[in-house]
Amino acid sequence: MEQTQNAVLSVRNMSMNFGGLRALSDVDVEVRSGEIVALIGPNGAGKTTFFNCITGIYTPSEGQVLAYPTNGRKMRADGARSDGVRINGMRTNLVCELGMARTFQNIRLFPSMTALENVMIGRHCRTRAGILGAVLRGPKARREEQEVVDRSYQLLKKVGLEKVANEYSRNLPYGAQRRLEIARALATEPFLLLLDEPAAGMNPQETLELKEMVIRIREEFQVSVLLIEHDMKMVMSLSDRIYVMEYGRVISTGTPAEVSADPQVIRAYLGEESDA
């Protein structure tokens, strides 16, 4: 597969086997700089498995996952693009450090930490204070800590949670927890934001607000977004391109209009007509 000039993530021929079960086969996905790309498909199509494969939670059985960070790290000195970082099999925390941050389908916040602290966790991989710094609290450690608090608070503000900064995250309403997860992911300074069903369980109004927030975030943080979503209205109006998955394969790809006209997709979603 040819590599597009400004890709930030390029997944080639990726397959994932769990024993004899082939959860993903020959998946090709590409996300370009500044794009919002959606991954849709029926339940069990392998969307979350795909996320887990590219974030290092699983190691893909076959294929390549290449990232091209645009956030300054791993760029060649002459400013030209590096050849990409091979991230299949990379440890999850290093993938995050590289600049790919995700949220989870079933919210995975740290319940007995405050909202602010949840975001501060995201700053962990961008800060350095060690045990000595923590105990002695020298000027450098103090400055770093203050910076972490300030930046985290700003991020909370961006997702509209500044009023509940010191609330335990378990006490936040559902929609707020979803937004907090996004803020936490943004705190890691990603170039690619991976959202796993961000609108799940939200009402139409909240979904609309979420959509606007994702667009705002893309502009403001210069991130590309890859999201899994079931809400078709949101997917169609938000994404630049869509990949449709079924039984672990990508069955269709293109702009929302192209995809929604694809007979394969219609078949996957509505079922086959009994007689032609």
Binding site: T55, N93, C96, R102, R108, P111, G122, R184, T188
Partner: peptide, 11 residues
């Protein structure tokens, strides 16, 4: 609190 989320957040 959550080992997987912890690692996914770069720790």
């Amino acid at each position: 609190e959550d080992e997987i989320a912890c690692q996914a957040m770069g720790i």
